[in-house]
Amino acid sequence: MVAVQIVNGLMEGMMLFLIASGLTLIFGITRIVNFAHGSLYMLGAFLTYQLVSHFAPGSLGGFAASVLLAALAVAALGTLFEILVLRRIYGADDLMQLIITVALVLVLRDVVQMAWGRNDVVVQMPDALAGALRIGGSYFPVFQLAIFGAGLAVLAVMVAVIRYTRAGILLRAATDDRGMVALLGINQARIFTAVFAVGSFLAGLAGGLASPFGNINYLLDTTVIVTAFIVVVIGGLGNLYGALAAALAVGVLKGLGVLYYPRLSMVLIFLIMAGVLVVRSLGRQTVGK
């Protein structure tokens, strides 16, 4: 029972990583905390719902294509937002940057309600991924295993890009020392736009992939963003590997918590988030602002 819950937790954790990876990537490089990340996720889920209806019900290819198209559309929206709005307030104070992404949250929430209403919608699980796989005497839903695989694939691609490509080197330089990037004559605005596009894509992708998993509604945005914040903060803002570790840990903790202390598990997770923040501040002891 415990082992099953741990495995289930790991699988949920990978889903959390998919959600959090884009958020931490965007923060790491642009220092913007994108409150609209949950909204982009929600949009990805709704768009997948819309697109999947054009394919044969239950077809795996149709689902994959829908998720990909939805993620691309979300990426396009994120890019547009970065170019038209965010770009004008880099360097403004913290609150302005946060609040402008909150504006996007409000707008998208209503757009989603206008397009899909206030009722829950459900995306049908692809037939090929329905059912369960027997591993060591226990059954695990195929769909969750597939999500786990997808998470690993995203991670592999991100690591490869960051490690081995010119874009990745620029990204690392931009994270470590933005002044240096400017000195090297690299167009910082273009990096920021690209990062925002990728981060938005990841949000949309996560929303699409998770769409058959539960009900989709216009209230998804805040639940998702709060969860993403937990993972990103515990993992260390801007730290991709930290986000992975935190996502898996939070997933397992939730899984075990459901078993033992169903009511306290969320409180415990927020306590960990608060504890991580406080402990980190001890290392960084500075005069408080």
């Binding site: 946060l98 803002l237 608060a274 501040s281 408080g288």
Partner: peptide, 22 residues
């Protein structure tokens, strides 16, 4: 108040979510 900027914002969020969840 031990934290600054975005870390302060995140900690206030975590603490209020603890209150909410309880």
């Amino acid at each position: 108040v031990r934290l600054t900027h975005i870390y302060f914002a995140m900690l206030t969020l975590a603490c209020s979510e603890i209150v909410f969840t309880i």
